[in-house]
Amino acid sequence: MLNNKVVIITGAANGIGKEAVKGFANQGAKVALIDLDMAALEKVAQEFNLQKGNYLLLPADVTIEEQVEQYVQKTKDTFGKIDVFFNNAGVEGVISLITEYPAKALDSIVNVNIKGIFYGLKHVLRLMAEQKSGSIINTSSIGGLRGMPCTSAYCASKYAIIGLTKCAALEFAGSGVRVNAICPAMVNTRMMRSIEAGMNSDDPDAAKDQYTNMIPVGRYAEPDDIIQSVLFLASEKASFITGAVLAVDGGLTA
């Protein structure tokens, strides 16, 4: 379905970004992996036995616009086009009441989750608009649909991603480019371990149980649960879906 498509994945070293590398590569796509650390990217390429010529490792800081411009340009120079952009890199910040929320954590969230997503859209869309084709999936969250105590900056950023998604979708709807957002519920990754420990440092498992109870299907998502929806939105089967928000959340926001 996605054979020979060129896919950029940010946050590719861990979590759902890493699972996306596997998912897209298995469908025959050429993948450009973006994350901060080259060693971590090499590990992913090795782990999934990516074939030479079919992947590109591009360490970059998504908060620095020139570096975003570069990862887009290098992907285009190597593979000639960009068909799919999984605009996924994100951080969770700290668990804290808004009244105590540290400025440094707020800055980090604004820089990675809002500006990083924004710069990615800005530079990838320039190319996709010229091509008159492309599919972009932004990673928002259930935190972009509902408030969750002690995650104010994170939720603000995930709501922002939905706004960016809709604006970008409307700007380029007539140009053959689609822009959508996914809203995962809690996924079984390092990010949730960090949030669970932030919620209950003495007993993070108790926090995990509490979060699990919020999900009607009774379990966290596995990264693959999320990636199946990303693969679908990336494909031509989703050709009439743009500006949409897909909750992949086991019923949590229902």
Partner: peptide, 12 residues
């Protein structure tokens, strides 16, 4: 893992 969701299929 998609339960109780509404997905817009509406060209924006």
């Amino acid at each position: 893992f998609i339960v109780g969701a509404t997905i817009s299929v509406d060209g924006g």
